[in-house]
């Protein structure tokens, strides 16, 4: 409940934030703090310097890319902002649908999409969803910015492609084209609770992308299942057949909420449900 002494700075610009992150050993960016402050309370981890991004208004916007092909979501955009965004509603409503089930309202009011994915807790909602949606992340450092795909972004629990002295600035999500359907489902601990297993799916003209959460330290693409569905047959039987073997391909953890076998089973069930729902939505 009580933090160790920590230095704190509140930069006024992205450049200043990056400078602070680069210059101070053990510096970490503080976004909404809904995980970081908790971890610091438990003293499970103790950054030496917190760089509070609160004043960086440019990280709080949701807009469209110049060619309108992607939704650009600032890293400091909160879940509540996503839920209420008209841009999201038009371009990729699944983001709002999923954001509205993250933790609870108070957490959604402060918790940000950037924080959610940089933490990459296996039970978090956005990592598998963004993998399924084929999102990409823009990371800025002293030498400029670079963009990585969602698959490349997630490296482990609390680990991402954001390196020392770098800052995640925005997430780009392709806008939904006609014939696209997205869904995310899973088994939670209580209504809208922590995921025990999650699955996100996006069905589009080029096929389906499926990502499973809570089964490893990063979202797992269900590539074998995706390949079996390339023909575009999203009938109940076809999707179930495609999911067979997905569980066996995973090495999920066992904990107090679910043994590994149960997680393997739930991964298949959740993947099937997510794909079926996404396909139904794709049909309109």
């Amino acid at each position: 409940m009580l933090l160790r002494e920590v230095e704190y700075a509140r930069p006024a610009s992205i450049d200043e934030a990056i400078r602070l992150l680069a210059e101070h050993d053990g510096a970490r960016a503080l976004a909404g703090g809904q995980t970081l402050v908790n971890v610091m309370k438990a003293r499970a981890a103790s950054p030496d310097v917190l760089v509070d991004l609160a004043d960086l208004a440019e990280l709080r916007t949701i807009s469209f890319s110049a060619d309108q092909s992607a939704l650009e979501i600032g890293a400091m955009v909160t879940s509540s902002q996503i839920v209420g965004s008209s841009e999201v509603e038009v371009a990729r409503p699944i983001l709002a649908e999923v954001a509205s089930t993250i933790a609870d309202l108070q957490v959604r009011n402060r918790g940000t999409i950037g924080g959610n994915i940089c933490v990459n807790d296996p039970t978090n909602h956005f990592p598998p969803l963004l993998v399924a949606l084929g999102a990409s992340m823009t990371i800025q450092g002293r030498d400029g910015e670079r963009t990585v795909s969602a698959e490349e972004f997630f490296l482990g629990v609390y680990f991402t492609a954001v390196g020392e002295g770098e800052l995640l600035t925005r997430i780009s999500v392709p806008t939904r084209s006609a014939g696209t359907g997205d869904a995310m489902t899973g088994i939670t601990l209580g209504a809208h609770g922590t995921y025990i297993v999650s699955a996100a799916a996006s069905v589009g003209s080029v096929g389906v992308r499926i990502a499973i959460g809570c089964v490893s330290s990063v979202p797992e693409r269900a590539t074998a299942m995706e390949q079996q569905l390339v023909g575009g047959d999203y009938s109940d039987a076809a999707v179930k057949a495609a999911a067979a073997g997905l569980g066996a391909s995973l090495d999920p953890p066992s904990d107090v909420h679910a043994a590994a076998d149960y997680r393997r089973h739930l991964a298949e069930v959740s993947a099937v449900r997510a794909v079926l729902q996404a396909a139904e939505r794709a049909r309109g």
């Binding site: 704190y8 509140r10 703090g33 917190l50 509540s80 108070q106 957490v107």
Partner: peptide, 28 residues
Amino acid sequence: DTGNCGACTVQVGGEAVKSCMMLAVQAD
């Protein structure tokens, strides 16, 4: 200890937030 219970909920800037998952300096 973990921001789950909401007993510390206050309004900051008109929104309900948990005051145990926020530093005092963040309310500046």
